[in-house]
């Protein structure tokens, strides 16, 4: 099993944490409790998940353009993910929110990623070197 995946760098930086993986996009303005970093929308698959110090792996943001401020609020409130991985092509809301929050952001992972990155696995995102690694061989 491969333990290093290539990716594209959008916002530089590094982050280590447990993966929170979803195939559902996120409307950061309406679905997030930004003071606690928790997904508050009961219709979302990540309902009640806390993003704090995690590696959020998701397809991208949808809905309100103000969602970029919500990402920044997570950072200021110390409940932001350690890094974010967009499983498709990064959207403007996530890119601009991470840019001012200095949250490492990568996308376009190698195609094999779904077999490697599962919910709860420990990940290291090194955006500067365009790499996502699994430091502990969890699988």
């Amino acid at each position: 099993m491969k333990s290093t995946l290539k990716c594209r760098r959008i916002v530089g930086g590094c982050g280590i944490g447990k993966a929170i993986v979803t195939e559902q996009p996120i409307n950061f303005l309406s679905m997030l409790d930004v003071s606690r970093g928790i997904i508050k929308d009961p219709r979302h698959h990540l309902f009640r998940s806390c993003l704090r110090d995690s590696i959020l792996v998701f397809p991208g943001a949808v809905g309100s353009s103000v969602g970029s401020y919500s990402i920044y609020a997570l950072k200021v409130n110390c409940v932001a993910p350690a890094a974010i991985i967009c499983s498709g092509k990064t959207d403007l809301i996530t890119a601009s929110g991470c840019a001012i929050s200095e949250i490492a952001l990568v996308d376009m992972l190698e195609k094999s990623w779904p077999s490697v990155i599962r919910n709860g696995v420990e990940l290291e995102v090194d955006a500067n070197n365009r790499m996502v690694t699994l430091p502990k061989q969890t699988i």
Binding site: S65, V66, G67, S68, Y69, Y72, L92, I93, A95, S96, G97, A99, I100
Partner: peptide, 10 residues
């Protein structure tokens, strides 16, 4: 594009 609040500000 569907700019974000921050990108339109930029």
């Amino acid at each position: 594009n569907r700019e974000s609040a921050l990108s339109a500000l930029a």
